[in-house]
Design a protein around this nucleic acid. Sequence first.
DNA 1: TTTAGTTTGTGAATGCGAACACAAGCACGA
DNA 2: TCGTGCTTGTGTTCGCATTCACAAACTAAA
Lengths: 224, 224
Amino acid sequence: MRYHRIPDETVRRLPVYLRGLMISADQGHEHISSQFLADFVGVQSSQIRKDFSYFGDFGTRGVGYSIEKLVREIKKILRLDASRQAALVGVGDLGSALLAYPGFESYGLDIVAAFDIDAEKIGRTINGIRIEDLPGIDDLGRRGITLAIVAVPSAAAQSTVDRLAGAGIRGILNFAPCKVVAPPRVKIITLDIAMELARLPYYMPAGGSSERPMAGDSPQQGIS
Amino acid sequence: MRYHRIPDETVRRLPVYLRGLMISADQGHEHISSQFLADFVGVQSSQIRKDFSYFGDFGTRGVGYSIEKLVREIKKILRLDASRQAALVGVGDLGSALLAYPGFESYGLDIVAAFDIDAEKIGRTINGIRIEDLPGIDDLGRRGITLAIVAVPSAAAQSTVDRLAGAGIRGILNFAPCKVVAPPRVKIITLDIAMELARLPYYMPAGGSSERPMAGDSPQQGIS
DNA sequence: TTTAGTTTGTGAATGCGAACACAAGCACGA
DNA sequence: TCGTGCTTGTGTTCGCATTCACAAACTAAA
């Protein structure tokens, strides 16, 4: 194996592999072939082998990959080897749903703080998390929290991001459907739910027959 | 202008442009330059011009693009020119939040039906939508609904998709973090929230200095 | 009419990611 | 020990998306 920079597209697929591998491990498997994993997660087997080749030799020809080794290495690369604490800003409908969302756990991600501007909500508890007032955000750095989820209205998104960046937050998952900027040390991923739905009708030709490309979902998003 | 197939990546950006253009129109602008729109939505101006060149000449050199024409054409391409009705399956925390989500409206998307398996929930009303029993799904085709959002647990996702496909649904936005398949006439986009968050720590190097690429967010997802 | 300043539209170059194809390596049984 | 079957790892090819760079086209003012 030679040294390789890990392409961004590979990084995007690593959590998909991780989930599939953890499920396989739960089912008692110790090894898995690229072909088997490919069918399971919906990626080409050659793609998987190429992806894995960027960061080490975990496979044995004729046998497959050691699931345990792979899981450990992928977690290390994604920096998910230690569990991570996240804060949520904006406890509206979506924010509340995220507080209760069970999916973060398997990645070792944990929402441990929530903030809202609404005095009505402050002090209330959702899923064991007490909702705090906005100034509490400024303490996040001291509390060792480096990850944040923004679920506030678009108009408040940029100021929220500014405040989070000032508090030492290093990664932000933004649900507000607008452009937000931050210093380069802060990584922002924006996830616009309505936009994804708006993209869908394009692939649904009016007539019964297909006049539009019906290719499988694009590889970046979704594993349909 | 010559005929061009519209690349998938361009289709992915069209809703972003559309949102930016509608906001500009609300602010009273009639024309917009590729450079101005670029700064607004976070895409290179050359990228925007290339994208627009795939489907017509809407610009005037020295002036910019006619916002009204562009909006109309993008809506036509995305098939958002007529308003579209969508159904939601799975009225848990996330599903409830989606029922109340205000962001769909500006794209002419409208959730008009909701389904859940829980007898406790059936008959209750959220945001004016009465929650129906699962068998109601089979009637969606007759009701003229072609779009669906799946917010059920992973274990129920595939069977839900099968039922929706059987009812004549043509596009599905899936929030369950698993691979789901459907006949080629049905387009599926999967949106895995936890996965996006799990991708974030990779870009957050432990040390103060950056040892990992801190490039802007990848162009596909997010407009950071 | 001419000139200066913009901005589009697009051919060409670049870069990157996906897919292919196959040699190298391992397990297992005869 | 040898042969068969399977699977990885990777050099190479292919295709597509992004960026560059500039001529063409428009406005406005002198």
